[in-house]
C-alpha cells in the first residue's frame, strides 16, 4: 500500500447517502443482475403460453379466464422475484450497514421496493397487452389491464418486501415467503381482476382503479415501516 502519511479529519457526523444515491445504486444493481429481471418475465410469459395447452384453444374460454389468469401470473412472478430482494444484501452485510444509518430505514426500503417494481412490475405491465392478445382478451380490457397492473404490482412489491424481510435470515425461504405473503395479496388481486372484468363487461371501472390507488397509497405509507421493523428483527440474531 502507499505510504502516504494520512491524517483524517475526525468529524462528529458521518457522510450519509441520500435517497437519490440509494435509487441510483439500486437501479445500477438491478441492471447488472439482468437475469433477476428477465426470469420473472419469462416465467410470466411461459406459464401464460402453457395455459391454452391445458385449457384448450377456444377463444371464448380463454377470453373468460384471461383477466384472472394474467393477474394471478403477474402476482406469482412478483412473488418469485421477491425472494432475492434483500438476500444478497443480507449475506454481504450491506443490510446491516443500512440499519446503522442515522436516517430512518424507511427510505432505503422504499427505494428498494421502488426499484423492485421498476424491474418487475413495470415490465410485466408493459408486456401484458401482448399476452392479452394471445389470450384473446376483449379490446375494452387492454387499457384497464395495463393501468391496474401498473398500480397493483407496485402494491405487491411493497407488501412482498415485508415477507422478504421477515424471511431473509431463513435458509430456504421460497415457499415460506409465498405462504406468508399470499393472503396479504388478496385485496389487490380482487380489485385488479375486478377492474378488468368491469371494463370488459362495459361498466365503469374507475371505482376499482381508485381503490387500487388507495391500496397503493396505504401500502407505500405503511409497508416500508413494517419492512424496516422486520429487517431489524431478522438481523437481531
Amino acid at each position: 500500500m502507499s505510504s502516504v502519511d494520512i491524517h483524517p479529519l475526525v468529524s462528529g457526523a458521518r457522510a450519509v447517502p441520500d435517497f437519490a444515491t440509494f435509487l441510483r445504486i439500486e437501479m445500477l444493481l438491478a441492471l447488472r443482475r439482468r437475469a433477476d429481471i428477465a426470469n420473472p418475465l419469462l416465467f410470466f410469459v411461459s406459464v401464460l403460453a402453457l395455459l391454452p395447452l391445458g385449457l384448450g384453444p377456444e377463444p371464448e374460454l380463454l377470453a373468460n379466464v384471461a383477466p384472472g389468469m394474467i393477474w394471478v401470473m403477474a402476482l406469482l412472478a412478483t412473488l418469485l422475484s421477491q425472494e432475492s430482494l434483500l438476500r444478497s444484501d443480507f449475506e454481504n452485510g450491506t443490510l446491516e450497514q443500512l440499519t446503522l444509518l442515522p436516517q430512518p430505514l424507511y427510505f432505503a426500503v422504499l427505494a428498494k421496493s421502488l426499484v423492485h417494481w421498476i424491474a418487475t412490475g413495470l415490465p410485466l405491465a408493459l408486456l401484458s397487452p401482448l399476452l392479452a392478445v394471445m389470450l384473446n382478451l376483449p379490446g375494452e380490457g387492454y387499457l384497464c389491464l395495463f393501468v391496474s397492473l401498473l398500480m397493483g404490482t407496485a402494491s405487491l412489491s411493497l407488501i412482498g418486501a415485508i415477507g422478504a424481510a421477515l424471511t431473509v435470515a431463513v435458509r430456504r425461504p421460497g415457499l415460506l415467503l409465498a405462504l406468508i405473503v399470499m393472503p396479504l395479496y388478496v385485496p389487490v388481486l380482487i380489485f385488479g381482476t375486478g377492474a378488468v372484468q368491469a371494463a370488459i363487461d362495459g361498466y365503469a371501472y374507475s371505482a376499482q382503479l381508485a381503490i387500487l390507488a388507495a391500496l397503493l397509497a396505504a401500502a407505500a405509507a405503511l409497508a416500508p415501516l413494517a419492512t424496516a421493523v422486520a429487517v431489524r428483527i431478522s438481523l437481531d440474531n
Binding site: 415485508i162 421477515l166 424471511t167 425461504p173 405462504l179 406468508i180 421493523v229 428483527i233 431478522s234 440474531n237
Partner: peptide, 18 residues
C-alpha cells in the same frame, strides 16, 4: 410456518408478532 422456520426463538417471536 414462520415460527417453525426461524431457528432462534427470540427472532421467531418478534417476526411472528410483526
Amino acid at each position: 410456518a414462520l415460527s417453525q422456520a426461524v431457528n432462534r426463538e427470540q427472532v421467531a417471536d418478534r417476526a411472528c408478532a410483526l
